[in-house]
């Protein structure tokens, strides 16, 4: 890590902006995309189970397995997308919304 910082510091003459941009992108990608994924997995499992196509446990297993691919896709997108603001809105806002929905579904009926 120090190597990253020294490189950026020397290039951007002590400006912290690119470092902050990189740090927030990494955090958004790793943490934001993870919470986006866990909420999606919860909701997808419930959705598949409610469709009645398979047993409840199978719905959870299917959603969890696909969750790894979703997380991989989100990670790649978070680094490929040029506009950091968009990443923040989708992964930050998206995971908040999805988690809100998942929490509502967890309330015992």
């Amino acid at each position: 890590m120090p190597a990253i910082q020294t490189q950026y510091l020397s290039r951007a003459s002590a400006s912290l902006a690119p470092v902050l941009g990189t740090v927030s992108r990494v955090l958004l990608a790793v943490v934001g995309a993870y919470f986006f994924t866990t909420a999606s997995v919860m909701l997808a499992a419930r959705g598949i189970a409610d469709l009645g196509l398979m047993s409840r446990s199978d719905a959870v297993v299917l959603a969890a397995m696909l969750g790894f691919l979703l997380y991989l896709g989100l990670l790649l997108w978070a680094f490929a997308e040029r506009r950091l603001g968009r990443v923040a809105i989708v992964l930050g806002g998206g995971s908040l919304l999805l988690h809100g929905a998942a929490t509502l579904l967890q309330a015992p009926a």
Partner: peptide
């Protein structure tokens, strides 16, 4: 990763098994 799905997605069953 899939072998340990229960560890990496511990919340996965929460909405489905809410009852």
């Amino acid at each position: 990763l899939i072998i340990f799905m229960g560890i990496y997605f511990p919340t996965a069953p929460l909405a489905t098994y809410a009852d």
